[in-house]
Nucleic acid binder design. Sequence first.
DNA 1: AAGCCTATGTTCAAATTTTGAACATGGGCT
DNA 2: AGCCCATGTTCAAAATTTGAACATAGGCTT
Lengths: 184, 184
Amino acid sequence: MANFTQKAIKESFIKLLNERPLSKISVKDIVEDCGINRNSFYYHFQDIPALLETIITEQADELISNYPEIDSLEKGLEVATQFAIQNKMAVFHIYNSVNRDMYEQYTMRLCKHVVGRYLEVAFKDESVSKEDKDLAIRVVSCSLFGLVYDWLSSGMNEERPADIKRVCELCKGIPEMIIERSKN
Amino acid sequence: MANFTQKAIKESFIKLLNERPLSKISVKDIVEDCGINRNSFYYHFQDIPALLETIITEQADELISNYPEIDSLEKGLEVATQFAIQNKMAVFHIYNSVNRDMYEQYTMRLCKHVVGRYLEVAFKDESVSKEDKDLAIRVVSCSLFGLVYDWLSSGMNEERPADIKRVCELCKGIPEMIIERSKN
DNA sequence: AAGCCTATGTTCAAATTTTGAACATGGGCT
DNA sequence: AGCCCATGTTCAAAATTTGAACATAGGCTT
């Protein structure tokens, strides 16, 4: 099926979110913006938080499935930050709302995925225990998450934070470090 | 109601029309492009010619209702040619199809409207017979139409034809001419 | 603090739209 | 002549949208 209505709801919501805070957006606003009945909204989504979660989850899925090349950590971040910058005000309003938790979970999930994919390759030919792999994923993804968190809370400078490159370098060092350690 | 499906059908159709000739576009192509059931197409439109006519008619209506300022003949043409240029290949494919007639009728209708609105103002304070007004509309709109026709059949040069300005000047002279004539 | 206003969610049945399947037709191609 | 494929049509089932009504709760005003 095509589900144009769901799509329209999401688009209206993001549009409004680029205009004003989450707390200032009602179901009525959304349905009026896309010209549908209020019940049609409730048919597709339980409420606004559910809509938001759907959008964020789908966005994460899309980023993950489109995640282009396994060997480029920067590329993954690039794609993710691109969306955030394009919808800067929306992200800002989500981030500065009661739903910050959810957004953080999404960010963390994304980080873990990107990092996991990357480390999978880095560890490919090495015999590293599952524990060490998980540790590496946690360490690297948390440092990435921290970076993004900082970027968001400090106002989302348009420039892709210069740190990112440095942190990526750091990330690349971690697998080697762990491999080395597991040999001893 | 919102009618997202109709909108999607039209968008897909125009998209395809920008890619290839009308004769190479099937109902199947359209429904596959927007991911709906074939019957949903037939629910909304009788067939492809009907769809085309709807699009052209609506486009004309929209141009007419958005027609910004009555006193600017150039502005009206500007808006009209803008759409044509934006959808250059689509217009080209429509124009070079069995449906050329329809498109010409649309063009003529648009010309008459724009000219009519313009002359309405030009004749506002003058006592000119209805016959003379109609004559003026016909003369001016036909010359505009001829201009557009020529523009289309000669390949739709991106530049707004330089003639347009000259023809507009000519058009502006006509009301005066007629007013003058009706005084004698 | 009471009353008012508005958004929220829910429920329901009716209306509309979408879908899948089947069928007959006709044009184009080999 | 026979085949393939797109076209239109029909039909009933499924999904979606709509309008109306209702109870609730929070915010605001007086």
